[in-house]
Computed example of a mutant assay.
Amino acid sequence: MTATTTDGDRTRARILRYLEASGTNPDLAHEIFAKDAVLEFPQSGERFRGRETFLAWRRRYPAEVTFRLRRIVGQGDLWVAEAEVRYDGADPHFGVSILEFRDGLVVRETIYGGPPWEAPDWRAPYREARDR
């Protein structure tokens, strides 16, 4: 019996390829976007419109960016990728990318990110141990 590749499997693979290429090959990474895509960073208040616009600034990005994927979840036209992101090998930041698709291409990506923080001691009795 052979395994069947679903649309979800193909979408997951495209998101993974996008994330893996984002730090090293912006041209390859940006094949996932529609020409009229929108990219938003709510924390900085920035919005970029059009694949060529945000591809241009990513080509000039002044840091080496590496990703460690934590997970990808979604279905249909809405997917979320969680990743650990490092800039120039520094301490990790954690990020969430919300990807909205239309006709197989990303039409909107919203990225949230931030540094890790130490959990307060008072919560220790209630939490599970986890690897970062």
Rank of each mutant, 00 (worst) to 15 (best):
M1Y: 07
T2V: 15
T2N: 03
T4S: 14
T4M: 12
D7F: 10
D7E: 13
D9W: 04
D9T: 05
T11I: 12
R12H: 06
A13Q: 00
I15H: 00
L16R: 15
L16F: 15
R17H: 08
Y18P: 00
Y18F: 03
S22K: 02
S22I: 09
G23F: 04
T24H: 11
H30G: 05
E31V: 02
A34F: 13
A37N: 00
V38T: 15
L39M: 15
L39D: 12
F41N: 03
Q43C: 02
E46D: 14
R47H: 08
F48T: 09
R49L: 15
R51Y: 01
E52I: 01
E52Y: 08
E52K: 05
E52T: 05
F54K: 08
A56L: 01
W57Q: 09
W57R: 08
R58V: 10
R58W: 12
R59H: 07
R59E: 02
R60P: 07
R60T: 03
Y61A: 03
A63Q: 14
A63R: 13
A63D: 12
E64L: 12
E64S: 13
E64H: 11
E64R: 13
V65R: 01
T66E: 07
T66F: 04
F67C: 00
R71D: 11
G74Q: 01
Q75R: 13
G76C: 15
G76H: 07
D77T: 15
D77P: 06
L78N: 06
W79R: 02
V80W: 05
A81Y: 09
A81S: 11
E82F: 10
E82C: 05
E84G: 07
R86M: 06
D88S: 12
D88P: 04
A90M: 07
A90G: 14
D91I: 09
H93A: 14
F94C: 03
F94R: 04
F94D: 02
F94N: 01
V96F: 09
V96Q: 07
L99M: 07
L99Q: 00
E100G: 05
E100V: 01
F101M: 01
F101A: 01
L105V: 13
V107L: 03
V107Q: 02
E109R: 01
I111S: 05
G114V: 11
P115K: 15
E118I: 08
E118L: 07
E118Q: 10
E118H: 13
A119K: 10
R123C: 07
R123Q: 03
R123E: 05
A124L: 13
P125Q: 08
E128I: 14
R130N: 07
D131A: 15
